[in-house]
Design a protein around this nucleic acid. Sequence first.
DNA 1: AAAAATTTAAAACGAACGTTTGATTGATTT
DNA 2: AAATCAATCAAACGTTCGTTTTAAATTTTT
Lengths: 219, 219
Amino acid sequence: MSDIDTKTAILDAAETLFVEQGFEGASLRSVTSMANVNIAAIHYHFGSKDALVKAVLERRLSPINQKRLDLLNALELSCADRNLQLEDILRALFEPALKMTGFGGGSHSNIARLIGRLFSEPSHSLQLYLKARFQEVFDRFSAALRSVLPDLPDVDFFWRIHFMMGAMSHTLCDQERPRLLSGGICNPQCFEETCDQLIAFVAGGLRAQCVGIKREDVE
Amino acid sequence: MSDIDTKTAILDAAETLFVEQGFEGASLRSVTSMANVNIAAIHYHFGSKDALVKAVLERRLSPINQKRLDLLNALELSCADRNLQLEDILRALFEPALKMTGFGGGSHSNIARLIGRLFSEPSHSLQLYLKARFQEVFDRFSAALRSVLPDLPDVDFFWRIHFMMGAMSHTLCDQERPRLLSGGICNPQCFEETCDQLIAFVAGGLRAQCVGIKREDVE
DNA sequence: AAAAATTTAAAACGAACGTTTGATTGATTT
DNA sequence: AAATCAATCAAACGTTCGTTTTAAATTTTT
């Protein structure tokens, strides 16, 4: 009991401080101080700071990615006969990440910022973790997206998947900027609004005219 | 002479190490060691690590943002009578950032990663610097983009500007991922390809159907 | 050539870092 | 009741951090 409480207290405090100060900026002493546990408890329960970082991420990422795969599975089952819709696939990809990370006033401290920041972390260890952890989700979703964009050349398709990840991670990273940029018009706290807008933008980008086909050629 | 050499040597080494290890991950000792200068030289020439970080950024960001404004000015002058083209505005925004940061084999160590990472840095000091440094570019370009997207509601417009920044910063951050994702089909070292693809995606996203107007309603 | 200002050098500052130790507690098992 | 084990604690480990000091060397100015 006390075991679980201590581990959870450490994870909660580490999550909060990693969000605010980054993985390197937050010290283990600040974590144990916030969690009201002894400094040695981190190495007893997790082994190292690096392992703690991954434990913090794993606690949130695991259910998010599982939900994504569940939604995609359900989608593919329900659409076995007719075609999948691009927007539905994107929703299955974005919705869990937004809904389960505090968008719309979720309970977790802004773990979205942590996840969004992952893609730009310089740490090699984290990059390897990230790649391994997202491999299945990437493979499944890129296959699904490929199937609904049959006319897109390969090169364009992969570039756009890359840009899509950029829009998504940036959205996770900074939940305040849209409100500031827009003078309060955008409401990033509203999960539905954020999700709908992100889907519309990415769908438009994925469906855009291919590079090499100039606008003048078709007009 | 020796002054310039020492300062430049420090900036070059700091840039390289900040790219590889992050602002916090790279120590001043590793910088002076790579630059072959004394550790005290950093505080003599720059004052503090924080000031060094900003000097490293400023050296690259300043000409990039100046070039962006120059291109936009030239664009607006040459198109005084007829309408601006969305793609041309995007090119004026993306091209300097890609061309002047080592895309396509530029000389600078991967400063693009530094710039792209800026948006997700947790440091308050850096966030303030970033905001002040990009204010003019943001204002000018968002006004230009607004003018060529007159039918887009405000809320959609600002959301899409946000997503656009995500696609751009992610592209700067990681020049290897497109190649890896695509199995070698995409060539991020090719500046032209990267720029054209990014423009096509973002233009498609900006031109996408507005949220609230369902596809069924128009089909 | 002398004097003044600028730049480099070696060394150390205190503080903070991740990590480890060894003793102690409290519950579980024998 | 004794032994075992996981969990917690205070304290310290050695290292590295950004920064400062003081003096020597160099360049610039007079």
